[in-house]
Design a protein around this nucleic acid. Structure first.
Lengths: 211, 211
DNA sequence: ACCAAGTTCCACCACATGGTGGATGTTTGT
DNA sequence: ACAAACATCCACCATGTGGTGGAACTTGGT
């Protein structure tokens, strides 16, 4: 069974191996999301994935590599590839809001980033650099859009530069997720995000969106 | 040496014991703040406090009790006792801002709450209830103040009720701390907090403060 | 000086941890 | 059918874990 599996993608290993590898990543995301990186054991992840913990190590080498694989997987699925031409304020807003909406059905994954972000304040944390990078990417993207909208719509903001405002938005974004973990459903996270971005982008001013 | 130690406070145990107990709490706060509750071992805390780990257990009984002691200690030092009559918008603003300022010199402690808050999204986390309580206390306090200011200054806000706005502020507060851990010094956390509270309380409208 | 209360450390326990090495079975192209 | 690449598990290791029990020492009041 299965006669076209070896050629439909540039692959590594066999199909069975890739499947368990994927399964491990998903269970690891849940587990890290519940008890953090340090608090999660490889054995517990392996158990939930239905394999021996040495099988897990066979695929990922060590615990840190597994963490990095989880983060990468999370990002590729929550921040789909985009063209630089696509970057309109509406696009970014929708992307962030719909991510937040989808996250409601997979709380563990969201929590993963919260815990990791908090843990990664320690300089030695293996995920520190990737997470900083992730934040910077988002910040630059948002800041650039804010700057463009400000010149296009003649918006002035004496309090914060676009970069500061973008960083503030990212911080608030994480804060909302954090809060939602402790008090599920109290805040309308997607709605608040939309409101904040709409205001920052000046989208409530009868504005042009794209070029 | 030391002849008036037994009577200056309602005490438990001897002075030496209380001293080491205090030392343990402080080291534990740092350690939990760096690697979370699950990621920190009692032995590592004890080592940093210069005692055997069984001494630590003698004082606190178990790991969870130590965590709770740390949180309690943190709160009593960051939220000093206040009289309900003291609750003016300016007082709350100053209290929060000065806490944020002081936190800059003790990053580990701030990080402690970030990690714990993130970890406590899991229902079984021992610190979940205390942290929820902590949040609720702050939210109620802020919401009540917002509500009072709204009626006093005739402020209208169709987007959020005082409770929602207060929750949003608390979430942002935590988010700023989280962000500051990953990107130290990028954001002016105390300044942003002051700005946010000033706006929420309508303090920039030439307003009355107390009664 | 006395002694109960309290403090501290040492030795130990059962168990979990991340990681290694090798043996056995499975996939895959040929 | 075959063999190389791969996948999986089992047994094992050194080390770390939270927690217990008890012996030796301090402290503080009388």
């Amino acid at each position: 069974m299965g006669d076209n599996e070896g050629t439909d993608a540039r692959t590594e290993g066999y199909a069975t191996g890739r499947a368990t590898k994927q399964s491990i990543v998903e269970r690891a995301a849940e587990a890290f999301g519940e008890r953090g990186f340090y608090g999660t054991s490889l054995r517990s992840i392996a158990r939930e994935a239905g394999v021996d913990h040495s099988t897990l190590l066979h695929h990922f080498g060590n615990k840190t590599a597994l963490l990095l694989a989880v983060i990468e997987w999370h990002d590729t699925r929550s921040l789909p590839a985009f063209d630089t031409a696509d970057i309109t304020p509406e696009f970014i807003t929708d992307a962030i809001v719909s991510t937040a909406e989808r996250n409601r059905s997979v709380p563990g994954l969201t929590q993963l980033l919260s815990i990791l972000t908090a843990e990664a304040a320690s300089p030695e944390h293996p995920a520190r650099e990737p997470l900083q990078h992730r934040h910077e990417l988002l910040t630059v993207l948002i800041a650039w859009t804010i700057g463009r909208q400000r010149t296009a719509l003649d918006i002035t903001d004496d309090l914060m530069t676009p970069e500061e405002r973008a960083a503030f938005i990212v911080a608030t974004w994480d804060g909302l997720h954090l809060y939602d973990g402790l008090h599920p459903g109290v805040l309308d996270v997607p709605g608040l995000l939309r409101g904040m971005l709409t205001e920052a982008f000046g989208l409530d001013r009868g504005a042009p969106g794209g070029s």
